[in-house]
Design a protein around this nucleic acid. Structure first.
Length: 777
DNA sequence: CCCCAAGATTTTTTT
DNA sequence: AATCTTGGGG
């Protein structure tokens, strides 16, 4: 956070400990009292509630520097977990600049998933894997599920693989093994086959010598539980534990941490968690804000430090953010304040005709700020959903404005990259059937469904990987001679490559593989417009491999990081989602698309009702607090969704901004503005917040299933209350079966409930209403 | 077995 | 609007 007024004096590298006298070591200079307290309180459990821009990362990194320089522990004895790769990278850099040396000495600083993978590889055999196991991404996962569905004769139309993948994710996030999943939860899917599918899926992963994202934590937990000695080893190793963004941790991560912390009595655990309940934006991924709320219960006597002094934003920006977030009920409550007397610019809210004009408008403003001497690097556009990015990109290309998309379409998700990776994966790990399937006939080798079927059958029959099955089949008469020859050549090539992996550098081998397999030629012969780009990407891929020591190391990076480090060299405007903006800051922040349905997102409201709305609001809070000097919000009156134009309603969040810091602008081309501050104040109260724009049968079915699945009480594991949803006020107080009265629909009976959102059977039919519209009959 | 054309479908956010 | 899927013909 370069904006903090107090800068770190780069440590001179000398024995800092000797300075621990009057004024303390250099790295403590410029910390405020609370920050210093958080850095120096090293022993025992500590919870740091750090609001946006209060120097959270600085505290964490300085704390590590402090532990190191007081020789309380070595780098290899500190476990420091973050949520994202970006955060991990930043921490590494900042520690390095504090301590002066490389961070190679901190092997256990990383994301939950990368550390989980690291631990699993060390003890792979104990969880039925081999150390070189493959980490599957979502795409592989879906393909695998599809195969299982087919094997079980389940109609994928009726029970989409995606849906099951979502369920799997949910279970794994909650730390549930197949045997822990109750029939109530899995039962509805595919007529009760849910739990069995989960078990089959796990078994299949073991055969493939593969783990999915969830397994990186879940299997770790199993490892620790089933092997106390292994766990003991880590208890010995980790003298200090630090966790960043604790509000984003899910149940599995919570259990994982708790196991690791069990080396000492709870009140003496050297665990420090840092978080901000107002920035919890990953509920959809299973994050439990309650983890942070119950920290003091888990670790009795934990010290709690609040960081409330904001070093980032102007008073006006803080006022806007605080006022907005105050509309949330489920929060611990912090008040950010700044010492700077100057209020700064007002927050601009601009209403435009459509998203095209929005892009044009923002483009103009950017150029204007640029003329005033602002760098493009200091500006960012933060969108709710990634489809919004395109319009900006198009506009900026015509303007010739440099931009950079962060977290956009992932490099490693491109088809050509995934194909190439499949080749590499198969060379590194011959049991990787998913990789095999992907590339047997890419480029086209004349191996179609019928041939593949033979391979599949043989593999399943003999219970061996596809590559081995192929190896055997080419010695028989079962295949047509043409296919047999093709496969023989292919298997021969793979043998060759595996051999060479031991002798030549992996990046060089990668190039050879792509050439010899005909993959490069395939794109060279392709005359579509994007094939040159694809070839360029392949080159880039090979180039980036050189940065890794081994093929395995590279593949691990690809699976876990999913994205290249973005080059920061050029001056460019950043375009990214609000989610990926967390932790960053910019002088100028543009927040487009503040319209009902988009932000707050309809889906969030549909799925999680009030809690979803609060999460959206936190997302808005995150967005606003990214700005240092200026925040500019905009909304379009018309937006195109799936090709259809829809007129949009201004976001309710606009009404939640304090009028005194907001300046409403309206471009000439719009009709009537949106009536901020009086003209049509509170016009949104009449809007049904749960009216969905998705009214396809499939969507409604999904929603119905969701309703069944959720609301099954607080989260418990092994009979113990692990986390419960934030109690949003007194609750509805209704239960299924209650008789109720509604002014418009009359008497009815509650069929289902989810938060304050009730499904009620009235005489006129089934309706969804909010509890505030009904009373007990 | 491959290719093309018509038809269906569209998950926000990410490790 | 754009992309993926599916089905029929070559």
């Amino acid at each position: 956070m370069p904006a903090e007024p107090q800068r770190l004096a780069p440590s001179a590298g000398g024995p800092i400990t000797s300075q621990l006298g009057r004024r303390g070591p250099d790295y403590l200079q410029g910390l405020n009292e609370e920050q210093r307290d958080a850095v120096l309180t090293i022993d025992g459990p500590l919870l740091v509630l750090a609001g946006a821009g209060t120097g959270k990362t600085r505290v964490l990194t300085t704390r590590i520097a402090h532990i190191l320089s007081t020789r309380k522990a070595r780098g290899s004895e500190i476990l420091a977990v973050t949520f994202t790769n970006k955060a991990a990278r930043e921490m590494k850099e900042r520690i390095a600049s504090l301590v002066g040396s490389s961070v190679e000495g901190m092997p256990w600083l990383g994301t939950f998933h990368s550390i989980g993978a690291r631990i699993l590889r060390r003890h792979a055999e104990l969880v039925d894997l081999k150390p070189a196991f493959t980490i599957l991404d979502t795409d592989d996962q879906i393909r695998l599920i599809k195969q299982l569905l087919e094997a079980e004769n389940i109609d994928e139309k009726r029970w989409p693989a995606r849906q099951f993948a979502g369920m799997l994710d949910d279970w794994k996030n909650r730390g549930l093994l197949p045997r822990d999943v109750t029939p109530a939860e899995s039962g509805f899917y595919a007529n009760g086959k849910g739990a069995k599918l989960y078990a089959d899926y796990q078994a299949r992963l073991k055969t493939l010598n593969a783990a999915d994202f969830g397994d990186l934590l879940l299997e770790c937990i199993r490892l620790f539980r089933e092997n106390p000695k292994v766990l003991e080893e880590y208890h010995q190793r980790f003298k200090y534990m630090l966790v960043d963004e604790y509000q984003d941790s899910n149940v599995a991560q919570y259990l994982w941490l708790r196991l690791l912390a069990q080396g000492r009595p709870a009140n003496e655990a050297n665990i420090c968690v840092v978080g901000d309940d107002d920035q919890s934006i990953y509920g959809w991924r299973g994050a439990e804000v309650d983890n942070i709320l119950r920290f003091e219960k888990d670790f009795p006597g934990a010290k709690v430090i609040r960081l409330e002094r904001n070093y980032r934003s102007t008073a006006n920006i803080l006022a806007a953010a605080s006022h907005l977030i105050a509309h949330n009920e489920g929060r611990l409550g912090k008040t950010l304040h700044t010492d700077v007397a100057e209020k700064g610019e007002t927050v601009a809210v601009t209403s435009v005709w459509d998203s095209e004009e929005e892009a044009r408008q923002i483009g103009e403003e950017i150029e204007q700020f640029q003329r005033q001497g602002e760098t493009l690097n200091s500006m960012a556009i933060l969108v709710r959903a990634s489809f919004q990015m395109r319009e900006f990109e198009e506009r900026f290309i015509t303007l010739g404005l440099n931009y950079r998309v962060i977290g956009g379409p992932r490099f490693y998700e491109r088809k050509e990259i995934r194909d190439a990776l499949a080749y590499f994966r198969l060379v590194a790990q011959p049991a990787d059937d998913l990789a095999f399937e992907r590339i047997v006939n890419t480029p086209k080798r004349g191996l179609g469904d019928s041939t593949l079927k033979i391979l599949f059958d043989a593999a399943r029959h003999q219970n061996v990987p596809l590559l081995s099955a192929t190896r055997m089949l080419i010695e028989t008469e079962e295949l047509k001679s043409k296919q047999r020859t093709t496969l023989r050549d292919l298997v021969g090539q793979f043998d060759d490559w595996s051999e060479r992996l031991r002798t030549i550098p992996h990046a060089e081998l990668a190039e050879q593989i792509l050439d010899e397999s005909g993959y490069t030629a395939m794109w060279q012969n392709d005359k579509s417009a994007d094939s040159p780009g694809r070839l360029e990407n392949l080159k880039e891929l090979v180039r980036s491999m050189e940065e890794f020591e081994t093929m395995g190391g590279f593949l691990e990076h690809v699976a876990l990081v999913m994205d290249r480090d973005s080059f920061e060299a050029d001056d460019a405007v950043s375009i990214m989602t609000l989610h990926s903006a967390k932790g960053l800051e910019f002088n100028t922040v543009f927040l487009p698309g503040w319209e009902e349905g988009l932000f707050p997102h309809q889906r969030s409201l549909d799925e999680s009702g009030r809690a979803g709305l609060e999460e959206e609001r936190r997302l808005a809070y995150v967005g606003i607090t990214r700005g240092r000097k200026r925040v500019r919000i905009s909304l379009a009156q018309n937006r195109r969704i799936h090709g259809l134009w829809q007129s949009a309603i201004p976001s309710r969040f606009l009404d939640e901004l304090p009028a005194e810091v907001v300046e409403v602008k309206d471009t000439g081309s719009s009709y009537g503005g949106y009536g901020y501050g009086g003209r049509t104040a509170n016009r949104f109260q009449s809007v049904d917040p749960f009216e969905s724009v998705y009214e396809t049968p499939g969507w409604q079915r999904a929603r119905a299933q969701q309703a069944q699945r959720k609301g099954s009480g607080p989260l418990t594991i092994e009979g113990e209350l692990v986390a419960r949803s934030v109690d949003l006020g007194p609750g509805s107080g209704y239960k299924v079966g209650d008789r109720v009265f509604h002014n418009k629909f009359g008497y009815g009976e509650i069929a289902a409930l989810e938060g304050n959102k009730l499904t009620i059977d009235f005489q006129t039919g089934r309706k969804k209403v909010l509890d505030s519209f009904i009373r007990k009959a």
